[in-house]
Design a protein around this nucleic acid. Structure first.
Lengths: 146, 146
DNA sequence: TTGTCAAATGCAAGCTAGTTGCAGCGCGAA
DNA sequence: TTCGCGCTGCAACTAGCTTGCATTTGACAA
């Protein structure tokens, strides 16, 4: 599923190991559609290996983040969400009415990045942005109700 | 400092009261430069009124948010930050190297809002955005070091 | 001025999400 | 086979915030 040898190499280059726990955590993320929270990763892996501790999940996620293998998204509510970076950078538009999540490509932020760079000489690091708002379906409802 | 009568009216319209605690909390926010966390508000007000509880701070902040008097910014790290909405909507570019915080006007997001609206028919509610990245001063340093 | 009642408060306990300290295990090099 | 250190599970802890509840406050009516 995942390209283990690449991960092994990435880890070995900085003197670390690819343990079974780390492999299982990585596979749980790779096998999932969309995002997983640390707790969900924990639950998933525990069906196969019940001794896995949540702290190991967090420590592994930290490692995978520094290796730029997974991205972490803080939704501003609830737990942070993790996903494979290899699936391609993208962002999320989350409807606060119905909860629908629209995926948006990284290019959506091009103009914003450009503006920040031009006007503020600021190099934004937006690996993963979650924007809350109202989707097209709920826009009408909100006007009727409001 | 704050226009108490306006706040009183806003509260009374929905059947609530402007208590001394609420007044002190609102003033603490109004008197501050930039952002305050709930804990900072708590500490500030407690110098004048030591019995104020942190839960009262949070409950008041909820109220002020629903009245659109203050904005809440989740920085994704550390506690949420609160400030008066009357100071004008703006966003923050936070340098992860030196910690500097650049203020950016709401118009910075115009192009992003437009893109989300055009391409996804999605009405974004971005009261306050915090973007992490590298500022102009640290950009050179990062290249030298990296 | 007193009574009423809901809003508001302080306090304490609880909760979620994540972190830390530590003893022991196990891989890989010597 | 010994050594070093990366890694793990466990347990305790922390930050930030929320909730339940008895008591107090204050606006309004009588």
């Amino acid at each position: 599923m995942t390209h283990h040898h690449e991960v092994v190499e990435a880890l070995q280059q900085i003197g670390y190991r690819l343990t079974p726990q780390r492999m299982m955590i990585l596979e749980a993320i790779a096998d999932s559609e969309g995002h997983l929270s640390a707790e969900e990763i924990h639950e998933t892996v525990r069906t196969a290996y019940p001794y896995l501790d949540i702290s190991t999940v967090y420590r592994t996620l930290d490692l995978l983040k520094t290796l730029h293998l997974v991205s972490e998204t803080d939704l501003g509510r609830g737990p942070a969400q993790y996903e494979l970076l290899s699936k391609g950078l993208h962002h999320h538009l989350i409807c606060t009415e119905c909860g629908e999540i629209l995926d948006a490509p990284n290019s959506l932020l091009d103009s914003l990045r450009h503006a920040m760079s031009e006007e503020y000489d600021f190099h934004a690091e937006i690996e993963h942005l979650a924007v809350f708002g109202i989707c097209s379906n709920c826009k009408g409802d909100a006007q009727e109700a409001g």
